[in-house]
Design a protein around this nucleic acid. Structure first.
Lengths: 251, 251
DNA sequence: CGACCATTTGAAGCCAATCAACCTGAGTGG
DNA sequence: CCACTCAGGTTGATTGGCTTCAAATGGTCG
């Protein structure tokens, strides 16, 4: 839009979500201050960006790939709290409370992350209150996500929640194939189980049940979803409609 | 502390949590601006402060009593998202997103609420970024609460979660009695069920099972908890210890 | 090949949802 | 005063789903 006025050297300037970037409010004058504490880094698939319990070192922005934010429970189990896609900020809770990371961040795909070191981030936020406003938007989004999940867990069946999750993932990782969609699952079945809140064995059985319904087909991490038309009565009318829209959108 | 310098007419000046109040950063100079959009109001037990879906009219601070923030689901069921005690801010999500309330706020006890009208609140936040910082702290707390709940739902039994909830409520509503504690439950069993995420009938059975364990005694909304010492092996060692500390603290 | 990991399958048992019936106390209206 | 209703709560019977333990399968990698 206003290419002429945008600072050519803003570290986030090349990101497709630059306009919505957390650090966008840092104007021409302070770009050097931002560039100072800024670092960009590739994270290999499976690599841990930060451990649960580790001290926070700054604010992280996913630039490429996908991260899983996982909470390790005292009893050895773990819960996958959320997935973070490019443009999303992670680790901001521990940054704000100047404490330890509440979750572990692990790359589920080859990823890239931009970090603004803690000291720099604190300084920038003090000087540019608009950054805090943007961070607040992210926080509210996280509250919304959490509430939605709590409600979903209390009101819908595990099978329905899995179907919902799969169509959600399909929207981000899928491509049209035949009369439906196909994707490579970015995570293991254990991860899916941790995301839905069931045991691994149950996830295996849920997947089998979904396959028996005829809408989904699985082979390892490959997933196909039929765009459906005349077949059986699948999950629900709402779900069916959602899928139809999804197929249309990706086509 | 610095009584001499505190504005004598700050609307929140008399609150015991004044120092931690959201509007504390409004200094001497701007108090009139705050007082402008400020209103205080009694809310009768059972009365609804705001409905789910209603447009946000400002930022609410619980001054007395207790509110239940409930989400009404499409299928007619509802989920009790959280309880709000004096000093807590409610309705800030819809305030920030300038949208509709995501939850219904209903007084579980005779309550009092202080409201800062939307326009005033927006102006104050623009002029005093420190307010936004404090609001961010509340938002992070809400994220923490939600995450804890998601993890608890995925890893602990309904019975254990209920026991935890009861001891939590006991800490806020209980008083020593005999060799244990006693409280009047501030909510119905349906509310408890909505908080734990089970059906009313299941809640009734959970309560019966807790009674059979011998730690709790129920009669209508009256609840007694034994401080225990020699009896049976109750919920868990951690839970037992927590209760012991609780009894000591309230003694 | 052997080790390891992810996944699947089976069997047993527990737990919660559901539907239905019943109970109680607090109004309400005749 | 009684009959009625209604909200809150309990109880029983049944069913289905999930966990748990155990064992088998399949793929990958040194």
């Amino acid at each position: 839009m206003t290419d002429t006025f945008e600072p050519p050297h803003h570290p986030c300037g090349r990101c497709i979500f630059y306009e919505k970037s957390l650090w966008h409010p840092v104007g021409l004058g302070s770009v050097s201050q931002l560039a100072n504490g800024f670092s960009r880094r590739e994270v290999a698939q499976g690599e841990v960006l930060f451990e649960q319990g580790a001290p926070n070192r700054g604010v992280f922005c996913v630039s490429k790939g996908l991260f899983a934010l996982r909470s390790h429970n005292a009893d050895g189990s773990s819960t996958l709290m959320r997935l973070a896609y490019p443009g999303e900020i992670i680790g901001f809770r521990s940054f704000l409370s100047q404490g330890e990371h509440q979750t572990e961040a692990r790359a589920l795909m080859p990823a890239r992350v931009c970090t603004v070191a803690r000291i720099s981030a604190e300084k920038l936020i003090r000087n540019h209150p608009a950054i805090l406003e943007r961070l607040m938007v992210r926080a509210v989004a996280e509250i919304d996500r959490s509430h939605t999940r709590i409600i979903a867990a209390a009101t819908t069946s595990n099978k329905d929640r899995l179907a919902k999750l799969l169509s959600w993932l399909m929207a981000r990782h899928g491509a049209p194939e035949g009369d439906g969609l196909h994707m490579h699952l970015p995570m293991t079945r254990s991860d899916l189980a941790d995301l839905i809140g069931v045991q691994r064995e149950t996830m295996s059985r849920l997947i089998k049940r979904l396959e028996e319904d005829g809408t989904y087909r699985f082979s390892g991490r490959e997933v196909w979803i039929r765009s459906m038309g005349e077949d059986m009565p699948p999950p629900s009318a709402a779900e069916q409609n959602e899928l139809r829209l999804l197929v249309q959108r990706l086509r």
